[in-house]
């Protein structure tokens, strides 16, 4: 018995001690068997489809390779140097960061506002919730094609603006390099606002009505209730939303690819469109792999830092402490 357990520090609190029936040894073997049985399929898939491909991509990224024939031209880290020394890729990183920042600064307050509104008892609430959520159900490709057609000069968007007497606001939405990125951001917001609202509504449902009532009884105004009771309790939901939104912004691809192909003049290139453009359209698979690895490292670093510093208190206990 000692050989099996000595390596593991005995941290089990006393509450775990009175176990019903069975010797500890038998229950440990059983636990291990259960764990192996339950984890093995997932682990095999995870290793085969997540870890191995990442390793393979990292390996390819060290070669100059057009995808055909054997890997013969080892170039070390040249692909990485090339990527970072290229203006287009640096621009792409910048575009991703602009979208990520705008997402948090603009979409978040908008989502919270809409969620608070739709959480109230008002006529047609279900219908309004559906309207807000509907765009999220559309696939990104469909969204992109619809908006691509609506944003053409003289298209639906321009006509609506002119009809509303806002003709002066009409722009070359997808053709002006100075505007195109922000046009895309509006479409992204249109598409994803519903997701944020639904997530926050779920968060709002989890806030006990008693707390608001208690605050109201103590004389808090409705603004004070929102500011000091509701928003703090919504914190975990908001933090998860920010996590998902930033990762999503860093990987932005479908919408951009269909609406602008990263143009005009690379004004809307993102890291992912750059990756596909070089990897698949130009048959530079080695270089494309290097870009994929860079994208992965950026996302992974963000994910780790965010988990460590922002999500820690939300996941405390669930992820950070041994269950057994």
């Amino acid at each position: 018995m000692s050989t099996a357990t000595s390596a593991r520090p005995l941290t089990a609190p006393s509450s775990h001690a009175p176990r019903a029936g069975g010797t500890p040894r038998r229950s440990r073997t059983r636990t291990r068997l259960e764990l192996a049985l339950l984890l093995a399929p997932g682990l095999v898939l995870f290793v085969g489809f997540v870890l191995v491909p990442i390793g393979v991509a990292a390996f390819y990224s060290l070669y100059s390779w057009n995808g055909f024939g054997p890997l013969t031209e080892f170039v070390g880290l040249d692909n990485y140097v090339d990527a970072f020394s290229g203006e287009v890729f640096r621009g792409a990183i910048g575009h991703n960061l602009i979208i990520a920042t705008l997402t948090v600064v603009v979409q978040l307050p908008l989502s919270i506002g809409l969620a608070l509104l739709l959480n109230r008892r008002l006529r047609g609430r279900t219908f309004l919730r559906m309207v807000v959520f509907a765009p999220y159900v559309l696939s990104e490709a469909v969204t992109a094609v619809i908006w691509l057609l609506m944003l053409q000069p003289g298209g639906f968007v321009d006509q609506v603006l002119r009809g509303a007497g806002l003709g002066w606001a009409v722009q070359q939405w997808l053709a002006d390099p100075k505007i195109v990125l922000y046009t895309l951001f509006v479409v992204i917001t249109w598409k994803y606002i519903g997701f944020g609202v639904i997530l926050l509504l779920a968060g709002l449902q989890g806030i006990p009505a008693e707390l608001r009532e208690a605050a109201a009884l103590d004389g808090a105004s409705s603004w004070q209730v929102t500011r000091h009771v509701v928003l703090p309790l919504l914190g975990p939901t908001i933090r998860v939303w920010i996590f998902l939104a930033v990762i999503g912004s860093l990987q932005l691809f479908d919408l951009v690819w269909i609406m602008t192909l990263g143009g005009p003049a690379n004004a809307s290139t993102t890291m992912a469109t750059y990756l596909i453009d070089h990897g698949f359209k130009r048959y530079e698979f080695g270089f494309g792999s290097a870009v994929a690895v860079i994208l992965f490292i950026i996302c992974f670093t963000f994910a780790l830092l965010y988990q460590r510093f922002a999500l820690r208190r939300d996941t405390d206990g669930a992820l950070t402490r041994a269950v057994n």
Binding site: V50, P53, I54, A57, G248, Q251, A292, L295, F296, C299
Partner: peptide, 14 residues
Amino acid sequence: RSVHKLSVALAAAA
């Protein structure tokens, strides 16, 4: 999600 999305594509290739 990041790891997943990327790796599915890469896995298919691999």
